[in-house]
């Protein structure tokens, strides 16, 4: 993890603050407990929370953002917002849902504010809805594949394109469930939809991806 690897940030010593705990001891604590400790000014607790959720949060943001540069900005803002809102955090709420909620709302704000610009980027695509337009723009966003064989790389790219071509709600549910390991109930809480709705979205997403993969297989065979 970046925090452990770089060790760039040392927990500052505050007046009256408890001494920083060792990472191993913090790893045993739940997210909610760490968040409570962070509320008291324990920077080490924040470091542990960041170690646990930075990858998954960034993944969620990156799959949803139509532009690559948005992911870094949204991620940084989300963690800063978590710091600001930590004083009002309630332990009964799931920390991960809480954190992802912040990022999701930030993303939605960006999409709303830049929707005219994004739509202008897709000038000529009058037959598609704004969501589809965003999705198409997102599909054009190429993600690097560090290592793969050529065939595997092409298949992975087609799969990525298929995921980005999904409607936003289906893509969101797919990313949260497949890439972040969230349950249907957690996704329902995060997205504000019913669990059955989330399940239906996942169903449609699965079917579309399979259809895309089948078409690719038929094309290769042909």
């Amino acid at each position: 993890m970046p925090y452990l690897q770089h060790g760039a940030v040392q927990p500052p010593q505050h007046n009256g603050a408890k001494p920083a705990r060792l990472p191993g001891m913090l790893a045993d604590l739940t997210d909610e407990t760490l968040m409570q400790r962070y509320q008291t000014g324990d920077i080490a607790a924040f470091g542990e929370l960041y170690r646990r959720h930075s990858q998954g949060l960034y993944r969620f943001i990156a799959w949803q953002a139509p532009r690559v540069d948005w992911a870094d900005e949204i991620a940084q803002d989300s963690w800063a917002s978590l710091h600001k809102a930590a004083g009002r955090y309630q332990p009964q709420a799931g920390f991960r849902t809480y954190l992802y909620q912040i990022a999701r709302n930030r993303l939605i704000d960006l999409l709303r504010q830049h929707q005219p610009l994004l739509e202008s980027d897709l000038a000529g695509a009058h037959d598609v809805a704004p969501h589809a337009a965003l999705d198409r723009l997102a599909a054009a966003n190429d993600q690097p594949t560090p290592e793969a064989a050529l065939a595997e790389k092409q298949r992975a790219q087609r799969l990525q394109a298929a995921i980005r071509s999904l409607p936003a709600e289906q893509r969101e549910a797919l990313v949260l469930q497949q890439f972040n390991g969230m349950s249907l109930d957690e996704i329902a809480v995060l997205t504000g939809a019913a669990a059955e709705t989330v399940k239906s979205r996942l169903r449609y997403a699965m079917q579309k991806l399979r259809a895309t993969l089948a078409q690719d297989a038929e094309g290769e065979q042909a």
């Binding site: 770089h6 940030v9 040392q10 920077i43 924040f46 960041y50 930075s54 870094d72 963690w79 710091h83």
Partner: peptide
Amino acid sequence: PAPSAELDQAILAQAA
């Protein structure tokens, strides 16, 4: 996708 090391440092430094 994963956050870069610079982003990690920036976020942690900001929190500190």
